[in-house]
Computed example of a mutant assay.
Amino acid sequence: MKITPPSAAAREEALVRLDGLVKPLGSLGRLEELAAWLSAAHDAVPPRELDDVRVAVFAGDHGITASAVSAYPREITAAMVRVFLAGTSGVTVLARQVGATVKVFDLAVDADGLPDEVTAYKIRRGSGSIDREDALAPGEASRAFDAGRRIADAEIDDGANLLIPGDMGIGNTTVAAALVAARLGLPAEEVVGTGTGVDEEGRARKVAAVTAALARTGDRADDPFERLTALGSACAAATAGFLVQGAVRGVPVVLDGVFSGAAALVAQDVAPGAVAWWLAGHRSTEPSQAHALKALGLEPILDLGLRLGEGSGAVQAVPVLRAARAVLAEMSSLADLT
């Protein structure tokens, strides 16, 4: 698949214009960098308004929850999907503050009774417990990846000009840690965090689970789809597809936390150059996200100590991006003073 890079010419034009605004050189710090990034993405100076932000929450259950790696039971995943639909989840509340739209997609929730619009892209019910077996059956990673691409296409065709991937699934941080460790050759101890807030015993169980998963997988993880099959999930594969298609379509994507960071490593392997279309919305408290972002060369916009997931941290970065755009669109130039 072809990834056309953002416009280098527009970026340079934006940087020149920023230097000519009524302020000391570089005095708006990261806002200037983001303004130039958006100009390159839109091939326009100033960039277009970010007035149609879409959050796609990819939901699925993970078999690894049987190893007590989370502070919450597996059944919370389906319950939270219903909370998203009610509009009272963390990300839906926060998204309303910035005018963003949230949709939830069931890729692998192990439950019945969810609406058809939520289950339209469903691949399976739950995933294998990665410490003992593959997460997915052969071919399911590709199917889920393609589903993520179709979801991105549908949102973009409907007018989205900024995409945010969200996640919902008890056990997500364990899966993300395994994906990052396998890709970067890191031991489980370096990538496993406390996730939903487990104690040291819980974290030790997570470390043991990821260690076993890595030993079982071996060098299969060198291939991104084999990595998803062995260690990932349908929602991780769909997230990767969503990220890739945003880049293919030339629409900026703001990554959220640990789960989208792990998926981004997969997506970059599938579509080299896609990372040029992504920003890191915030710094998660999970160590695997830090490793993933370093490998991708991305610096988080915000650091608020968030670990909710759902796309909630990335949503908080939207006002910062709008402010960066406004600097280029509305500030006077030094030439206006004479």
Results as ranks from 00 to 15, higher is better:
S67G: 09
S67P: 04
A68E: 15
V69W: 00
S70T: 12
A71R: 11
A71N: 11
P73L: 05
P73M: 10
P73S: 11
R74Y: 02
E75G: 09
I76V: 15
I76W: 13
T77N: 04
T77W: 02
A78I: 09
V81C: 06
V81Q: 01
V81D: 00
V81N: 03
V83G: 06
V83Y: 00
V83K: 06
F84Q: 07
L85M: 09
A86Y: 01
A86H: 04
G87W: 01
G87V: 06
G87K: 09
G87N: 04
T88D: 09
T88E: 08
T88W: 00
G90M: 03
G90P: 10
T92F: 03
T92C: 05
L94R: 08
A95K: 08
R96D: 14
Q97L: 15
G99F: 05
A100N: 08
A100E: 10
F105W: 13
D106W: 05
D106Y: 03
L107A: 11
L107Q: 11
A108M: 07
A108V: 04
D110S: 12
D110P: 10
A111R: 08
A111Y: 07
A111T: 08
A111P: 14
D112P: 02
D112L: 11
D112H: 06
G113M: 04
G113D: 11
L114R: 07
P115M: 10
P115D: 08
D116W: 07
E117H: 14
E117F: 13
V118C: 10
V118D: 13
V118N: 08
V118A: 12
T119N: 03
A120K: 07
Y121A: 12
K122I: 12
K122R: 15
I123D: 06
I123A: 05
R125G: 13
S129D: 15
I130T: 12
I130W: 05
D131H: 13
D131A: 11
R132W: 13
R132C: 02
E133M: 02
L136C: 07
L136Q: 03
A137Y: 10
P138M: 07
G139H: 06
G139N: 12
E140S: 04
A141R: 02
S142H: 12
S142N: 00
R143Q: 15
A144Y: 06
A144N: 06
D146S: 15
A147M: 14
A147Y: 09
G148Q: 02
R149D: 00
R149Y: 00
R150E: 15
R150W: 11
I151G: 02
D153S: 14
E155P: 00
E155H: 11
E155T: 01
I156H: 06
D157R: 10
D157T: 01
D158C: 07
G159V: 03
G159P: 00
A160K: 07
A160S: 03
A160W: 01
N161H: 01
L162M: 11
L162F: 10
L163C: 07
L163S: 07
M168G: 03
G169I: 01
I170A: 04
G171F: 09
T173A: 04
T173D: 08
T173S: 14
T173E: 02
T174R: 10
T174H: 09
T174M: 11
V175T: 13
A176C: 11
A176Y: 05
A178P: 06
A178D: 06
L179S: 09
L179I: 13
